[in-house]
């Protein structure tokens, strides 16, 4: 699991790659928390395009990032969702709470 990001004019893009499971999720959540505190974005794009695997741990990561963005009065959009990750997010009905593109 690797995370890279770029921040410009308080628009933040976080790119995840590799496998997002419970083992990876704890550190990832902490990293995203810190990044949001540092960059204070108005909009965050969470790019899942390079994820080769994601289980329900990813749902918790997305929901937490969404809550943190709401606390900053910003919003979160999840983009480039691979098919396997999409099946997990759809099963959780996450589209009702988070913008999935």
């Amino acid at each position: 699991m690797e995370m890279t990001y770029r921040s410009e004019d308080r628009y933040l893009t976080i790119q995840l790659s590799g496998e997002l499971d419970h083992h990876a999720a704890k550190n990832l959540m902490d990293s995203i928390d810190r990044l949001l505190e540092q960059t204070l974005p108005v909009k965050t794009f969470l790019d899942l395009g390079e994820l080769s695997f994601m289980d329900s741990s990813g749902i918790a990561v997305v929901l937490r990032a969404k809550r943190r963005m709401e606390a900053l009065s910003g919003n979160l959009v999840v983009i480039n969702i691979p098919r396997q990750a999409a099946r997990v997010l759809e099963t959780a009905g996450l589209g009702r709470y988070v913008d999935l593109l």
Binding site: K26, M29, D55, S56, I59, A60, L63, V88, T91, A92
Partner: peptide, 15 residues
């Protein structure tokens, strides 16, 4: 807690 989503069994059932 906040680190889990509570969807584990639901995903096993659906998949």
């Amino acid at each position: 807690g906040e680190e889990r989503s509570g969807m584990g069994f639901t995903i096993m059932e659906s998949f």
